[in-house]
Amino acid sequence: MADAKGIYILAELDEGLKPTSLTLELMGLGQRLASDLATDLNAVLLGSGAQAAAQELARYGTGEVLLLDEPALSGYHPEIYIEVLAGLLRSRPPLVLLAGHTSMGQDLLPRLAFALDCGLVSDCVGLRVEGEEVLFTRPVYGGNALATQRVETPTAMATVRARVGDAPSPAGTAAAVIPLEVSPPAQTRLEMKGKEVLSGRECPLEEAPVVVSGGRGMGGEEGFGQLREIAALMGGAVGASRPPVDSGWAASTCQVGITGKVVAPDIYIAVAISGSTQHLSGMSESGKIVAINKDPDAYIFKVSDYGVVGEWKQLLPSFTAALKELPKV
């Protein structure tokens, strides 16, 4: 294996074939690491029809954007992606490879790390350079502790949560886009039999800019209708803490917390949620947190930016009405 060098970002594209916001955040994070380590920032992009996205990524990189453009790569297939990426990284071992802690990142990076025998830190909420190496911080014990870890192999891999990095600034000279020949494996063991999109999940919790969640104090299913109305007005999605899910008031796919979804929207509204650790671990990285709770001593107020003490039944109707009347900015 050649000497490990450079920071590499594994890019992901949205349905419009543009780099996702998390990918751009990783480019921003990569710029900082590359500058601290005096090395280049590169990107790897797998997809089909991804030339424009590669050009956009090139604006932020200083090294190269490796473009693997091929119809077989249009959707994520673990074995095809592994085969193609493992080959590529063996010939160009990076110092650091970063991917988003997304559906794909969580599935792909562990496979890649074990295939190449590289250390991987998953679900990072902080990265910094100390001396010649990168230190990775991640929550453990359901967010009750933060562990800082170092990787002991020449190539370090990490998956990074949303909102950890900043938007990148254009580099002085754009990186070179390098299209590479791809030879996907002829046979795979995994067979993808098709995807089922569930209604009501068109705005996935993890990607929603606003999440409106209800807790035990909602007392039943009915209140979630009001939360849905607020979520719709704000362009967001509805979440729940564990008790409403256990009681069947909300779907298990709505559950926010360490045993559910980890979200970090711009605005998180917690209604009738007291703030257990396991719930906080799923939302404490949110931009602004708003809490509505009848108990003035509820722990949720300690971790919120805005709080109102009161019964949600009395507060939400006027809150919703005022939202509707709000002039557009």
Binding site: G119, V121, P139, G143, Q149, R150, K302, V303
Partner: peptide, 13 residues
């Protein structure tokens, strides 16, 4: 392959 070098309580408040 990965070593923990520090452990701390999170500050969420």
């Amino acid at each position: 392959r990965v070593r923990t070098v520090a452990l701390a309580a999170p500050s969420r408040e």
